[in-house]
């Protein structure tokens, strides 16, 4: 289907791509955008609290969303998007309030350290440290470490997919489900949609290339490291069931769908849905677009169903 009409208008209001903007300027621009009238305010929960957790060489903040109801609850680790260079806990706060309420999960949202100040593999290792922290503190969070799932969008979808690989490879906590929204899975950036939809559809190839360089450096060997490009991992067997949503007009579309295909070939139960008419990241515009609210609710329901199965055994 064509691009949603509301998004035609949205696109025309985006500032033109400026290759000279620094990461600080990009972050400032993101912070100035605000959420009023764009993102539907999230519901009140039983509690929402920030905690500091230890990571290699420091600490990072995690925000813990606890929905109403008796525990122990399933536990969901969430990694936000922003090209590994941008993104905040606040950016996904409303969305995660809905997700916690509608899935019944305790959600731990991680402010992993960002590039270029902290390049690869800091984000991966911070996320893995958060996964271990979740396992070890599940009881304290009123949650059940046996029902641990991960999720993320865009760069966060990359980290969620990578976490499943890392935890499998290191014999870490069993992750029971992965919810990947518009995930980046191939840092080479060579699949067709990166180019075909790389310009004129909001976030584009130039942005991805620049942030990819900040995160991974310019050594091409880094791009084929499976913990940077999970699509290129040789072995995808033994990974948890996946739910993958892609956007029709997103440069990352093809790599998200290719990852679904490879998971299927590895025997992993995988749900894929390409959302028609959407751009990269516009699933966040829940106050503007009914489709975005549907997307949000679809993902919450998918998570709810996945953890429901775990409860049933």
């Amino acid at each position: 289907m064509p691009l949603l009409p509301a998004l035609e208008c949205y696109l025309s209001q985006l500032p033109p791509h400026d290759p000279d903007l620094t990461v600080e300027q990009l972050r400032a621009w993101g912070a100035a955008m605000g959420f009023d009238g764009v993102v539907e305010p999230g519901p009140e929960l039983s509690s929402v609290t920030d905690r500091e957790i230890p990571v290699a060489g420091g600490t990072v903040t995690v925000r813990v969303y606890t929905p109403e109801g008796e525990g122990p609850k399933p536990l969901h680790l969430y990694l936000h998007g922003g090209g590994f260079c941008l993104g905040t806990l606040a950016m996904v706060d409303d969305e995660l309030r809905f997700r916690a309420r509608d899935s019944g999960c305790v959600i731990v949202s991680v402010a992993y350290r960002l590039a270029p100040e902290c390049p690869y593999p800091t984000a991966v290792e911070d996320s893995y440290a958060a996964l271990l922290w979740c396992r070890d503190h599940a009881a304290e969070l009123g949650a059940d470490a046996g029902r641990l799932t991960v999720g993320g969008a865009s760069a966060g979808g990359n980290l969620a997919a990578v976490l499943c690989l890392v935890s499998r490879d290191r014999g870490g906590p069993a992750i029971r489900f992965q919810l990947l929204e518009i995930p980046l899975t191939d840092a080479r950036g060579t699949l067709p949609s990166r180019t075909e939809l790389g310009q004129g559809y909001g976030m584009g190839k130039a942005d991805l290339d620049r942030m990819g360089d900040w995160y991974l450096g310019t050594d091409p060997r880094r791009r084929v490291d499976p913990y940077a490009s999970p699509l290129l991992a040789e072995d995808l067997t033994g990974l948890p069931p996946a739910f993958i949503v892609t956007s029709e007009y997103d440069p990352l579309r093809d790599e998200g769908e290719a990852y679904a295909r490879r998971l299927v070939e590895a025997g992993v139960r995988t749900t894929l849905k390409r959302w028609p008419g959407m751009l990269h990241g516009t699933h966040s515009l829940t106050a503007m677009l009914p489709e975005a609210a549907q997307w949000r609710d679809t993902c919450s329901r998918a998570l709810a169903e996945a953890v429901r199965r775990l409860r049933a055994g």
Partner: peptide, 21 residues
């Protein structure tokens, strides 16, 4: 059959596919 799942998904349908031994 797996291709049908992929084609459904690309048309906006949530398609779950699992390959069993």
């Amino acid at each position: 059959a797996e291709l049908y799942g992929l084609r459904l998904a690309r048309a906006g349908v949530a398609a779950t596919v699992r390959r069993y031994p």
